[in-house]
């Protein structure tokens, strides 16, 4: 259990909650996340251009077959709301120099069009520098309001870091759904 990346991720989430003696809150969020993971097919949905999304789609997206990790509609970003670290000196899985990965995060479920599988993607924010300001994306598949905080993206996931300044967001595959 402890070796599983999702368990590790959720373990961090729970530890923060336990430290504040409010574990029950996070268990609600955790159960909700886990119950929804693996059930939903999200590939193929054509999302409208959203406000706060003024990079790839706003500037003219690449054809579907050529999506790269700096395009907002790259498959891993199906529920990413923030600046792509790929455009900010980091990469799809690395934070830019001088920043630190968030200690808490939320997990989306996105389908890789190449193999048709659904993957659990951890959207860690990178923290400690001013906002990057490049490649702002806003996708919300399976995103839910803050009463399901574990699947909410209109909040700073650097909230538990010191300092909690938000810089950009990475998309790390942590498992296969279903």
């Amino acid at each position: 259990m402890s070796g599983d990346p999702v368990s590790k991720l959720m373990g961090v989430f729970d530890r923060v909650a336990e430290n504040a003696a409010r574990k029950s809150a996070q268990m609600i969020g955790r159960r909700s996340v886990l119950s929804s993971l693996g059930k939903i097919l999200v590939g193929g949905a054509v999302l409208p251009m959203l406000p706060f999304d003024r990079s790839a789609r706003a500037q003219g997206a690449s054809p579907a077959s050529e999506k790269t990790d700096t395009d907002c509609d790259y498959w891993r970003y199906c529920a990413l709301d923030g600046f792509l670290c790929s455009c900010c000196g980091g990469s799809i899985t690395s934070c830019p120099p001088g920043t630190e990965p968030s200690t808490v995060t939320w997990v989306g479920t996105c389908q890789n069009p190449k193999d048709g599988k659904d993957y659990m993607v951890s959207y860690n924010d990178c923290c400690g520098k001013t906002t990057c300001g490049r490649c702002l994306c806003n996708s919300n598949v399976r995103e839910r309001p803050g009463y399901l905080l574990g699947v909410h993206n209109d909040i700073n996931w650097c909230m538990a870091n010191q300092p909690s300044m938000y810089h950009c967001t990475v998309s790390v595959i942590v498992g296969v759904a279903g």
Binding site: R22, A25, Q26, M27, G29, G146, G150, A160
Partner: peptide, 26 residues
């Protein structure tokens, strides 16, 4: 949200506050 959720209740006149626990609520 820390991410544990709660509500800070502030008395405007005295500026005193307390934290009302609110697990899982928002």
């Amino acid at each position: 949200a820390t991410p544990a959720t709660s509500v800070t209740v502030v008395d405007v006149a005295s500026k005193k506050n307390f934290e009302a626990q609110g697990p899982g609520c928002y």
